[in-house]
Design a protein around this nucleic acid. Structure first.
Length: 391
RNA sequence: GGUCGCGUGGCCGAGUGGCUUAGGCAACGGUCUGCAAAACCGUGUACAGCGGUUCGAAUCCGCUCGCGACCUCCA
């Protein structure tokens, strides 16, 4: 239990760092043994399962006579039949593709609960069917998961629900694809496995530097969820710069000065963005449109375009909605930046630099800028002053 | 071996019959700047290969090559 808790806590912290909304309920399979037993019983009663030696198996062949097993993953029963390998040792199952609803525990098995069939444990697939319908209702809209779970896990969930309750529990299945690294899949055996903590700290042989959680989030959003995403230092650094550009644009958006009329059209932009979201959550397209808008914002800033007061307000709330609320990005500022005294000190230095510049003492002004740069403070000259930010 | 999917410019990554210069990063030229940075303007490079369908294909079909996921009762 202690080990489980350790990894659970770690996972929660990582999700929080990535600015992922916490789930309302995080049920545990081991806390729903009774419900799982009940569902197995129901399936048995409906004639889609059979008991052998204290174990209960789902009868896929029987189920297939009236249902389409394999409809989610596009598999056919005949293919499964011919391609399932023979397992060593005797099998109690009628068919290799049958799966366990309740499994009798071997003596060495730690997890075990009493049931009318044996001391044992529920089959893997049952927990998801049971817990999802318990908390979301007999019919719910979206069931997510990684592509690797599509078969057999989700296929079996569908079969179980149908066999127990006569209808599908899930309306839409959404499967996200997997991440590859430098063209290869991430796996322990290849030694190219990177944990989130390592990514955030940069402490990994494969990493050239640390990548902040928001960079990672933005990186992932730049690919469609159904595509594989290739992970590399180059790609992450490109995302880092891109995100910076996006956030710089948002800073500019805050300070834009409206004029009487708009030379730009913001409704078209809005429509395009929502269209992308409605098209199977196409976040890369959405982000491309957002960048088009950023360009627009920068052009307004350099007086190449104009924006009215109403449009500006509209645009500001639109970007807030899209970037922060929908894409779930957030500005990661080092706490030092918000320290008032620190801020005053930097401003003081830069004012001295400004004076040096006026006196054409560029040696001094460059020195201040370069030294600040070294500490990680980026100075940007403006027409009538300066701006700075912490890298 | 079987099933399914993928292969897009230097990199990442959208697009699925004709006109998206997708977008980001990188590169090059320019504007601005004392010089930078940022920003803006402009430029190039592309659809794995071969064949087919079509007036027209990155997009449809076939084959070949390369890569991946699943097919392991591990949740």
């Amino acid at each position: 239990m202690e080990i489980v808790q350790k990894y659970t806590n770690n996972y929660h912290r990582n999700m929080d760092e990535l600015n992922t909304l916490p789930p309302s309920i995080e049920p545990h399979a081991s806390a729903h043994i009774i419900e799982q037993e009940a569902m197995a019983k129901q399936i048995l009663k409906n004639g889609f399962a059979y008991e052998v030696n204290g174990s209960v198996y789902f009868d896929v062949e029987k189920y297939s006579q009236t249902n389409n097993y394999g409809k989610l993953s596009g598999r056919k029963l005949e293919d499964l039949q011919t391609n399932t390998r023979e397992l060593t040792g005797q099998s109690e199952k009628k068919n290799p593709f049958d799966f366990a609803l309740w499994k009798k525990a071997e003596p060495e098995h730690i997890m075990r609960w009493p049931s009318e069939w044996s001391n044992g444990f529920p089959g893997w697939h049952l927990e998801c069917s049971v817990m999802s319908t318990k908390y979301l209702g007999d019919k719910f809209d979206i069931h997510g998961g990684g592509l690797d779970l599509q078969f057999p896990h989700h296929e079996c969930e569908i079969a179980q629900s149908k066999a127990a309750k006569g209808e599908d529990a899930v309306k839409y299945w959404m499967h996200n694809n997997l991440i590859t690294i430098e063209g290869q899949k991430m796996s322990k055996s290849l030694g190219n496995f990177i944990k989130l903590d390592e990514l955030f700290s940069g402490k990994h042989d494969k990493l050239e530097k640390a990548y902040s959680p928001m960079v990672v989030r933005f990186f992932i959003l730049q690919a469609h969820y159904r595509s594989t995403l290739d992970f590399s230092n180059k790609a992450l650094q490109a995302s880092e710069k891109g995100l910076q550009r996006l956030f710089n644009g948002l800073e500019t958006l805050k300070k834009l000065k409206p004029t009487a009329k708009s030379s730009i059209e913001i409704n078209t932009l809005k429509e395009k963005c929502f269209k992308a979201l409605n098209d199977d959550l196409n976040t890369p397209i959405l982000i491309a449109h957002l960048f088009d808008g950023i360009k627009m914002i920068n052009q307004i800033n350099t007086d190449d375009e104009t924006i009215s007061k109403e449009d500006l307000k509209e645009l500001q709330s639109f970007y807030k909605l899209l970037v922060f609320d929908i894409l779930g990005l957030k500005v990661e500022k080092e706490t030092a930046g918000s320290d008032e005294k620190f801020e005053q000190a930097v401003n003081l230095l830069l004012n001295i630099r400004l004076e040096a510049k006026k006196n054409k003492d560029f040696a001094t002004s460059d020195k201040i800028r370069d030294e600040l740069n070294k500490i990680g403070i980026i100075v940007k000259d403006k027409k009538d002053g300066f701006e700075w930010e912490i890298k």
